[in-house]
Design a protein around this nucleic acid. Structure first.
Lengths: 231, 231
DNA sequence: TCAGTGAATGAATAGTCATTCAGGATGATC
DNA sequence: GATCATCCTGAATGACTATTCATTCACTGA
């Protein structure tokens, strides 16, 4: 658990109210709405997308959207939550057979690859989070921290195993990894010209290891680097 | 000059037309408008900011804005160009007395510090560039590349001096430095809790050096790291 | 068959805001 | 002091769109 997470404030779970009672139906309809919204928001931005367009793409009426979300902002919130949750979900649980460095490598890989698959959505999060009311924005940030913690645990394990120096700032190291992945989406227009995704991920991991590892850690890294685990 | 820049397409200089003839006046008024716009766009976002608000903050009439810009999008373009130009301007010329690594360090420092001073504006660029018509967006990207080239030259110098390995991907290394600085603005809400700006810049530089340097480079780095140049 | 309930519809409402334009002000030139 | 060029103003226009709500629909159970 990261320093930051340890002293996180209690955040009230922010939920979006629905007029519809059937929970299963609510989930289904919201998925439908969110699927349409992700696409339109990603392509045209939040403000240029109209509720009518979302309704049409989701094949429901304008009015129905307002049975499942109170405002357009609610739709944005549901959309961003769905995106960020998919990122978090994608990071695999720690495989107890894996060495700490391997485990970190796998997590970074998985994370960077979801970002790659949903690049437009990743950019959307940067463009639009600020358009949310404070409470909802905080919930988004909270989710981001929870996702980071999944990486933080693995970095921490590397420190514990003396593969990383004892004085590394775990939180900062995690942020560098996370942002490396985000950058792939944010600057894809340029990066795609100079490296492949695989090279890019490998370069980011190498940077991170070189910056933090002990001699033992570097040896372990050299081993991973040769093995087929690193596909 | 970076690989990318070498094969850049010729980009027609995109300019915003003005009804007013006096060039000096145009510059003055636009500065006035942009100053107001940066503040409002940064705080409230492009779409939530109205032309009326900009006019009031700039202490001119709504109509006058339309003498100096054809559309609201033009105002956004002028605003973003002004921000990015200020970033570029801030990177000092290479001091011929400096060693290559020192020169790179100074550039990163200067860059990260402008970003810090104008954090909200840096975030604005990420939020709003996509709201621009294609031609203008391309001009913005072009300016970003030109700024990166100022760092690329210095990284290249490190390679030439055999302080960095011959096989480093200069363009990629530059992007990591640039994004490190941007991240300070994008994730300031979290980073400010875990490091100071100085620590943050130093950490980014160290990562970069550790990732790219030859043994000679590491020695040179250790020297800089002790010297007072690194304020 | 029918009353009752929750879902779904989409036209109407109510506001907002970018953009225009008819008309002033100022100062230079003749 | 009349004419013209240039700059400036802000009320009026015309679109656009989030949100509402009166109605309709579909189903359930008795």
């Amino acid at each position: 658990m990261s320093v930051r997470a340890a002293r996180k404030q209690r955040v009230n779970k922010v939920t979006v109210k629905s007029q519809v009672l059937d929970a299963e139906l609510v989930e289904m309809r919201r998925e439908q709405i969110v699927a349409a919204a992700v696409e339109l928001f990603s392509r045209n931005g939040y403000f240029k997308t109209t509720i009518l367009e979302i309704a049409q793409k989701a094949k429901i009426s304008v009015g129905l959207i307002y049975h499942y979300a109170r405002t357009k902002e609610d739709v944005l919130f549901l959309t961003l939550m769905s995106v960020l949750e998919s990122y978090k979900r994608e990071i695999p649980a720690v495989d107890p057979h894996d060495m700490p460095l391997e485990s970190l490598w796998k997590a970074l890989n998985a994370y960077a690859r979801v970002i790659d698959r949903r690049r437009a959505a990743a950019v959307l999060a940067y463009r639009s989070t600020k358009s949310l009311p404070t409470a909802q924005r905080r919930t988004i940030m909270q989710l981001e921290i929870e996702t980071n913690d999944l990486l933080a645990q693995r970095v921490q394990a590397c420190v514990a195993a003396k593969l990383f120096r004892q004085d590394v700032n775990v939180d900062l190291a995690v942020y560098q990894l996370i942002m490396h992945a985000h950058t792939w989406a944010l600057k894809h227009w340029h990066l795609k010209e100079i490296v492949t995704l695989d090279e890019y991920i490998a370069a980011g991991f190498e940077s991170s290891v070189r910056a933090s590892a002990t001699p033992a850690g570097l040896t372990a890294y050299a081993k991973i680097n040769r093995s087929p685990t690193k596909r």
